[in-house]
Design a protein around this nucleic acid. Structure first.
Length: 106
DNA sequence: TTGTTGACGCTCA
DNA sequence: CTGAGCGCCAACA
């Protein structure tokens, strides 16, 4: 299936210090309703090589909804903070400023 | 094949 | 702000 691959490719294109949304990726891939599948795809992204920066993908609200599914040794918020993205209470601070939309940026 | 589930998103109360 | 309902669709038991 190329859907997973496409998701990975897009996620890997996310600039350093920026984030995007599941729905945005889904829309970019042509399926605005595939947001759930994007999450599923990322679920298998951990074993992907090269590594996929899945921590840069959050939901439409800028909330780290997938933090609980991340390996305990690499929390999303920690990695995001590491890249300059502020995270507060599992939510991206100034989400509209760091938001990266593949539709308009690509 | 059917029923559940889910890293979503939107709307309404 | 929280919760519930609905639509969507692939993976899985």
């Amino acid at each position: 299936m190329s859907f997973n691959k496409d998701v990975y490719d897009v996620v890997r294109l996310i600039p350093h210090g920026r984030v995007t949304a599941y729905g945005a990726i889904a829309k970019y891939l042509g399926d605005a309703r595939a947001s759930r599948r994007v999450g599923w795809a990322l679920n298998s992204s951990f074993t992907e090589i090269p590594k996929v920066p899945a921590h840069r993908v959050v939901n439409r609200n800028g909330i780290l909804s997938g933090a609980m599914h991340f390996p305990p040794d690499c929390s999303m918020s920690e990695q995001l903070e590491n890249e300059g993205v502020k995270v507060k209470d599992g939510q991206v601070v100034e989400f509209d400023r760091v938001f990266w939309d593949p539709m308009t940026e690509l």
